[in-house]
Amino acid sequence: MNLNSLLAQTSEWLKGTGPDSHIVISSRIRLARNLSNFSFPHWADKKERKEVLSLVKDALFKIKYLKNGLFLEMDGLSALDKQFLLERHLVSREQTKGRDCKAVVISEREVISIMLNEEDHLRIQVFQSGFNLSDAWRLINELDKQLEQRLNYAFSPQWGYLTACPTNVGTGMRASLMLHLPALVMSKQIKDVLQTISKLGIVARGLYGEGTEASGNFFQFSNQRTLGRNEEDIIDNLERVVRQIVNYEQERRKSLLKQSREILYNQIWRAYGILKNSYFISSGETMSLLSMVRLGTDLNILRDVQLRKINELFLLTQPAHLQKIEGKKLNAYERDVKRAELIRERLR
């Protein structure tokens, strides 16, 4: 397995399977862990970061889940490859920047990704398709148990797992769900939803934003706090809130279909038509049109289009993916051409 072989497979989080996958794209849980007595990466010198890297690397190679996995040192990657991993959500933006001795380990099916020397020594992530935090938690908890047999984690009985930033201390856990909410956006109710949930200890952010606005109607919801509640309760609270949002979105989709049937059909079929017939298209326009098509597949308006195919297009039309597919560097103009070509091919 090498980095380029990822291109041929669908990321776990984009499979379009799993519970409620018409609205919930993916579930993700992240644990922040550090080694006792070593400085946190941002404060450590190169020698110390190197030492941490080799200690953790040794431990990781003995874990069964990571057999046949991919180990990549960020220093050795081109800017394009870093961007490629970022688009696949396998590394964070922070991990693609700056300091040396950063690395990432990716499991065979991209279910697990572990960043080394990011903000914390370890950032363990597990992805699942659809609304499925419980499986993600089971797996990451098991993985964590195996790692703690081999690594001396920084932990205090009072403050839990100790992290570089006090906003992650305690469980060190961030659970997130990525949702597609076109009907709530179209009916202008998204604002109320976002305002309400921020009072419930949940953080929301738009995804795929290009500077100003979240395009594609994707939103990520995660727990805000990490201290004072156990992992199961944190997950439970997030699930409960998101369950409500899923229900709202579902209701809005139904009532749009009832009340503005022609407008909805018009928007969805036009979006599909433009995507199938473009020779030049920006990534922002692609996002919003794909979003409409995705809605169309759920409402059975576009019967021949597969959800998975649309999910994949959201990723494949990103700049680094286009360039990896083409096998060479493309400027913005060339990307817009290549993007249109790829979409035409895939939707034929």
Partner: peptide
């Protein structure tokens, strides 16, 4: 964090 005490898993 609104709390002062870790509630949750402990390493073995």
């Amino acid at each position: 964090q609104g709390a002062e005490q870790h509630i949750g898993k402990f390493p073995h």
